[in-house]
Computed example of a mutant assay.
Amino acid sequence: MELLSTEQQLTGIVTTGEVLGLFKDSNPLTVNQIPSRVPTGAGPTDLGGLVDDINVAGKSPADRERILVRHVQQPDGTGAWIVSIPGTAQWSPVSQENPADLTANLRLMAGMSSTLKPAVQQALSSAQRQAGVQPGSEPVMLTGHSQGGILAASMAHDPQLAKELNIREVVTFAAPVTGMALPAQVNGLDVGINGDVVHHADNQDTADRINQAQISCAAPADAANNFATHNSHGYAERAHALLGHDTDVIAAQDFYRRADGVFLGGTATTYTFELQRPS
């Protein structure tokens, strides 16, 4: 008997749950822009800075998912975009007002529709219009921790959406995204910490694709258990300590060669959005 894939198993769970009134995700999300804490400033300069932005985005009310959309402009006048997406906010199987929930995890991992994807696209397009930039005319990097990484990879996994948004880089932390193949024009970098069980939740350890690189970092000495290594602040600490510009990790060096002077450095204008399921 042929075993079902992880994606097929999750699809079965979601489909069965929907019959029982669980995992509902059909109504479009409300996308509200709020004032950014630091509207303008220096753009992120390294992988640690990308996780720091994800952590800033994660400081949101319990019933909302907050994301950062940053327009990075370089001294030569070129521009690019970084979308920072935090991880799971709540684990109830009954869909809550905060869409960063168990429902989103299962649906995204199963390759099913999720209202988070068009909501993130709406936020990005809104920020681009405010900046006077035609959507799709400047390159985009999607970054995320845990569920945020799943969402980022899922969006880029769709060739039409990746082309429409001009996605060029996907950087994920603690996200089980190895099985999500990316279009040829998109580069993926997946960062994990040894012992993080969530990072391997897709049961696939190696992406055998030239445009998807993986980095495994040693766990912090003070990590109490496997779940402690999953914390986004721990990922920020590891990235700052091990994956700066002076790193000897080849995948990180390759990333910096692509991202420096495009997505990293320069001056950033930040647009902050909150996503919420209608009551």
Rank of each mutant, 00 (worst) to 15 (best):
V177Q: 02
G188Q: 07
A57S: 09
S216D: 07
V197Q: 13
T172A: 06
E97S: 12
I167Q: 02
S26Y: 08
R66K: 15
I54D: 02
G266M: 14
N32S: 15
P183T: 08
I210N: 05
G43S: 06
D190A: 07
M141T: 14
T45M: 10
C217A: 13
T45D: 05
L124T: 11
R277F: 11
S60D: 08
V31W: 00
A213Y: 01
L182F: 02
K59T: 04
S232H: 06
P220F: 04
M180Y: 08
N166A: 09
A239M: 15
V197N: 03
G41E: 09
S216K: 04
L142E: 01
R107H: 14
F227S: 08
G48N: 03
I167K: 09
S216P: 00
F173V: 00
R129E: 14
Q253G: 11
A268Y: 11
G48K: 08
L3W: 04
A218P: 02
H200W: 12
V170Y: 06
H245K: 07
L50S: 01
M141A: 15
G144S: 05
G261W: 04
Q73R: 12
Q134K: 14
A42E: 13
A181F: 00
I193C: 08
H200T: 03
D248W: 02
T103H: 02
E274C: 10
S95A: 15
L102M: 14
S137P: 13
N231W: 14
K59C: 00
T178C: 01
A251H: 10
V19Y: 10
I85Q: 06
G21P: 15
P75N: 06
V51I: 08
Q160Y: 05
A201Q: 03
H240F: 07
D248C: 02
A104Y: 01
G77W: 06
L50D: 00
A207W: 01
S95P: 01
H240Y: 12
P28C: 11
P183F: 05
Q253T: 11
A119I: 05
L108Y: 01
